[in-house]
Amino acid sequence: MRKYLILLFILVAMLISACGENEEGNGEDDATETSAEETSASGSEGAKWKPEESIEIIAPAGAGGGWDTTARMAAQVFSEEGIIDGNIGVVNMEGGGGAVAWAHVAGFEENPYKLFVSSPPIIFIPLNGQSEYGHEEFTPIANIIADYAAFAVREDAEWDSINELFEDMKEDPESITVVGTSSPGSMDHMQFVQIAKAAGVDITKIRYVSAQDGGGLTQLLNGSVDVYSTGVAETVEQVRAGNIKVLGVTSEERLEGDVLEDFPTVKEQGIDETFVNWRGFFGPPNMSPDALAYYEAKFKELSDSDAFAEIRSQFGWDELYMNSEEYSQFLDEQKESLGALMDELGLGN
């Protein structure tokens, strides 16, 4: 009988080590190896840098979210289209809204095999004082896609345009509750605040509730709150079912796609402001210029590929490519404007 048992444990052990490899890629052990290889790569061969071991892309959040999906889809297209030969593994590293993963990558200075995906929280979270590492510490490689915010209310709500809502909020900002998934001072809150400020609402008086685990939509539908600040994609099915209506989206122009094209932008309603939920890839601090040039080119190729275009349309993302230099500059500007906004709210640190 013990035979079976030993067999079972061997099976289980194999299963676990297999899962471990899939998810972890080559965790710690490549830290030492790479420093040696990296010097040889940047030293003798000069401009032509090529990955010689597997690349790890970290999604600084759990499976299933926006970062995770972006990282996995990018890795999939890189491999399937043969843009990058060799292994690319996606690793989820959850915690602190990204802070845990950033601190991890910050420890892999110059290592060209540790990339991560990020979006506006890499601006918000350091500003909130929840991460000592911000975008300045890392090497921005390229921005890839853009997503936009949507502000939704129940179908039977009294407001039919974003202006009607903001007019009521100007009169009595405390009569209206906004719900979002992130905590105050992070994305769902700040995207609403940014637009509301441009419309002239007293942003220090906005009542914001943070609800996790799908609670935002639940609370909107059952009438606990008035406005749901979220991403465009989250609203589509509910709009089609006639449960909610979108008062405004934060893109420059109307979005393309079936239901999406019916969403009015806040801009066309006379509020001169946009909010982009950009998503791009970063490398560790001080990545060598050769490795950076390599990745920049590969991400450009990814962004231009038909396969990725298909993925963009599947998930309702917009194309927004920026190379490393444009991206760095963009990030600095974002930090400045959002920092000012957070100071006004008393959330800055």
Binding site: A63, G64, G65, D68, D213, G214, E237, Q238, R240, N243
Partner: peptide
């Protein structure tokens, strides 16, 4: 998605090109 697990499931649906909803 009412929990971490169902959020991952929702992710799996989306990867398949299926949008759960009403």
């Amino acid at each position: 998605p009412g929990s971490g697990t169902t959020a991952v499931m929702l992710g799996a649906f989306l990867v398949m090109g299926v949008q759960p909803g009403p």
